[in-house]
């Protein structure tokens, strides 16, 4: 698992391709929000949580598709399938690499959003960090599995969001609430059910991906 993780990160370090496109896309999405929605309303700190996840979802999906496409190119997929390792670890490795990229993106995009949108009355608490960690984990798990499933078809760029968005609905509902709570400094107790839901979501999709990758990687 760690080998796959390091391999993906090594590729990323050399090319910087995915992270760069992820950040640029995220910035563009923020600009779209600024141009299309009423700026006065966007200052509301509770909105920032939702906007952050909409941005990450749109930008992240496109970037995650890339990471799976790299495997499809140059026959790396067959090599992965033949490698004497547990196929579930291939999933966990790739998901971990994607998670790291999403985390970096979230950490950079959030302050930029707050500045550009001029969000007022922010009181970030540690809960915010937890929300971002749990949210990106679930997104990485579903995104990695979805990208693998879509990678064999034509029109995979279109198919990936079609596959992942509906599956991510529970995560998005929960994480937007928890993130907003973290941004305005609400007590974690107020959002406990949401936190539990996020943990369960992450666990379920990491496990399912780990178990089903056996079938996915068998070409």
């Amino acid at each position: 698992m760690w080998t796959i993780f390091r391999k993906d990160l090594a590729i990323e370090r050399r090319t910087g391709e995915i992270l760069f496109s992820l950040l640029l896309l995220a910035l563009l999405v923020v600009l779209v929000f600024a141009f299309t929605l009423e700026l006065e309303r966007l200052r509301e700190p509770r909105l920032l949580g939702g906007l952050l996840w909409a941005t990450l979802l749109l930008a992240g999906t496109l970037a995650l598709g890339r990471s799976m496409l790299l495997e499809r190119e140059a026959g790396a997929w067959t090599a992965l399938a033949l490698a004497p390792i547990d196929r579930g670890s291939v999933f966990l490795g790739k998901a971990a690499a994607n998670l790291l990229l999403l985390l970096i993106a979230a950490a950079l995009v959030l302050p930029v959003m707050a500045i550009l949108l001029g969000t007022s009355r922010l009181a970030p608490s540690p809960l915010l960090g937890l929300a971002i960690l749990l949210g990106t984990t679930g997104m990485a798990a579903v995104g990695t599995l979805g990208a693998a499933l879509a990678s064999r078809t034509r029109a995979r760029e279109v198919l990936l969001p079609i596959l992942t968005f509906p599956l991510l609905v529970p995560l998005l509902i929960a994480v937007a609430r928890v993130t907003s709570a973290g941004l305005v400094g609400e007590a974690p107790a107020a959002v406990r059910p949401w936190l539990v839901l996020l943990c369960v979501f992450d666990l379920v999709f990491l496990t399912v991906g780990w178990l089903t990758f056996d079938h996915v990687l068998e070409d």
Binding site: R152, T153, R154, L167, P170, V208, H215
Partner: peptide
Amino acid sequence: LGGRDEVILRYAAVLGVVGVLDIPLLIVAI
């Protein structure tokens, strides 16, 4: 989009399972 290829049938089956597992989470979330 995948066609009737053996691999796609397997991928669809994986999605069929994943889809149903999402339902309880959806219910709670909503």
